[in-house]
Each structure stands twice: as structure tokens, then as C-alpha cells.
Design a protein around this nucleic acid. Structure first.
Lengths: 157, 157
DNA sequence: TATTGTTATACTCTATAACTATA
DNA sequence: TATAGTTATAGAGTATAACAATA
């Protein structure tokens, strides 16, 4: 008998949801030894790559609502992986930086995630893997446009 | 300046999460006029394609835990899109079927989702689209093996 | 007045244990 | 004893409103 979900398999969304579930389970298992989850790893990498980044900039980069980012950063700060320092020019804001410990953990976790990524894309050529990422970015770009950061063009009701 | 998340962009998982978020928002918008969500649509399609399917079989096909499926089916049943009939041979089980109304709505919703899928993959060739789905299935297959449905081979602790 | 970070809160999704009725 | 469906519940993840401090 054919697979019960054969119709759904023709849709990119359904197949992507199943693939992402597999990825998420695997990457969280890969990150657990470091005390990280997918979202805390993502935040740590972006902070390490962009010293002095503000929380609101990080929230925008990761498409996380500001309130939800607070607990994520609390977790990283409690583990002494990042620091929140008052910004010099604007005393409302914090500048985020990875600590020495955070930078080291980030490097090790990155290698673990690189190995995880290779495991999940096993059997695909590097060209296929790049094509996959390009297709995913295309889909993201085709999605409903995010609210612009500039002055708003639509007057809401 | 480079994108703050440039490192993460090299990982399939991060880019897939963002692409899936875009897809989910768009498909739910496409399904809202039908009173459906992604998961209720998926359940309805599989039921329509497999008349007489049991709840546990549907749960396995969609990788939804049985308890979570109950409310989804309650919702479809309340909307008179599916029926739950006691199975003839096994009075514990229910046989799921789409009602006439459910079948019609399913057809219309499928067309809307097909249009949504085309919108999200706009700019990609049909070959690229098929390659994307193949890559996603490969990733799913590379994931942690699901528990087998046959006799278990591992004795749990 | 607007913005940064925060608190409180609510809603969805998901996972597990335990129950019932059947087998 | 095991299975199908159910109930209750708890944990994530995510979204919005409102606040204090600052601009």
C-alpha cells in the first residue's frame, strides 16, 4: 500500500516540517553536552561574531521577540558565556559580548553542530547541500514580508 | 556590514527553521478561510485519502502523539468534516472517514495549498522544487531512527 | 513622544502518565 | 497482559500589552 501521507509529500511545507523535526532533535542532542539548545547556541554564535551587539539588534537578527530573548540571555549570562554591559552612548541599552569561556564553548559547539549538519546531509553532495540552503533562503524571501525597519509605509487600522 | 547571522546561515537547520516559519505563516493564512490550520488540513487530507484509517494509524503517519490527535479530530468532527465510526471487528477502535462536506472542503483547501506552495517556491524550477523535497526527505531519513513498528529489537532499561 | 530592556501573561505545540473499555 | 482512545498535565516556544528608565 502507498504511504498514507502520499498527497502531503508533494508539498514542500509538510516535508520540511518533518525534516526540521529530525534536525532539531539531532542538533539538540549534539548541543546538550554543552548545556546549549538550538536557540541559545544561535544567540551565542551571533554574539561571538558581533561583539557589542544590542539586544534589540540580536532579536531582529534571530527574529525573536525582545521579551523572549531576555530569558535566553539570562541563561547564557548565568552560565557566564556572555556579558551584558551598559552601552557607553546610550544608557538604556546593553552591549553583548561573549566571555572568554563563552568564546571557547562556542567554538567547540560550532564544531559539534558542523558534524551534526554533515550527519544530517549525509549522502548529499556539497553542491546539493548548497542548493538546499539556497532553496530555503529563496522560500524565506518569498514569504510574507517582515515589517520594514525603516519608517512604516502602511497605516494600520 | 555582513549579516549578523552569517555563520548560522551555513547550517541547514538554521536556514530551514527560518524558511519553515515563513511557510507556516503563509499556509495558515491560506487555510484560515477554510477554518483549517496546517495540522487539521494534514489530518483531513490523510483521512480523505485513506477511508477507514484508525486514529493510531493516523497518529503514526503524521508523527503526532495519540493524545494530541484527539483534539485535532474533535475539531474536524465538530465541523462535520470527518466521522468517527466504531470499527466492526474491534470495538476499541474508530474508523475515520471524510464526510461529503469534508471531502469537498478538502479539495478546495488542497488547491489553496497548492497555490501557496507555488507562491513559496516561486523563482525555482520544477526540477529545483523536486530536488528540494528530495533533499528534505533525505535529511528526515538521516535523522534519529523512529521506533520501529514491528517487534522491538532493543530492550529498554 | 519614542526606544531599550523588562515583567507578566496567554496561547499554541508537544510529550508523558494514567485512566476506560475493550481485546 | 496489551491495545485504542481518552483525560489531565506539564513543558517548551511564541506573541502581545504594559511598565521603568532613558533618550
Amino acid at each position: 500500500m502507498a504511504a498514507p501521507d502520499r498527497t502531503l509529500r508533494g508539498f514542500a511545507g509538510y516535508t520540511m516540517k518533518r525534516a526540521f523535526n529530525a534536525i532539531q532533535a539531532d542538533v539538540n542532542a549534539a548541543l546538550a553536552p554543552f548545556g546549549l539548545r538550538m536557540v541559545t547556541f544561535s544567540a551565542l554564535v551571533v554574539i561571538a561574531d558581533n561583539p557589542g551587539l544590542r539586544q534589540s539588534e540580536l532579536a531582529e537578527a534571530l527574529m525573536i521577540e525582545r521579551p523572549n530573548l531576555v530569558l535566553i540571555l539570562d541563561e547564557l549570562e548565568r552560565a557566564e558565556l556572555i556579558s551584558r554591559d551598559r552601552a557607553a552612548g546610550d544608557r538604556r541599552a546593553y552591549e553583548l559580548r561573549a566571555t572568554l569561556k563563552g568564546g571557547r564553548l562556542c567554538d567547540r559547539a560550532r564544531r559539534a553542530v558542523t558534524a551534526h549538519d554533515a550527519r544530517m546531509t549525509e549522502g548529499m553532495s556539497e553542491t546539493d547541500r548548497q542548493a538546499l540552503i539556497a532553496a530555503l533562503r529563496r522560500i524565506e524571501a518569498n514569504g510574507p514580508e517582515r515589517q520594514a525597519h525603516g519608517p512604516d509605509r502602511l497605516s494600520a487600522s
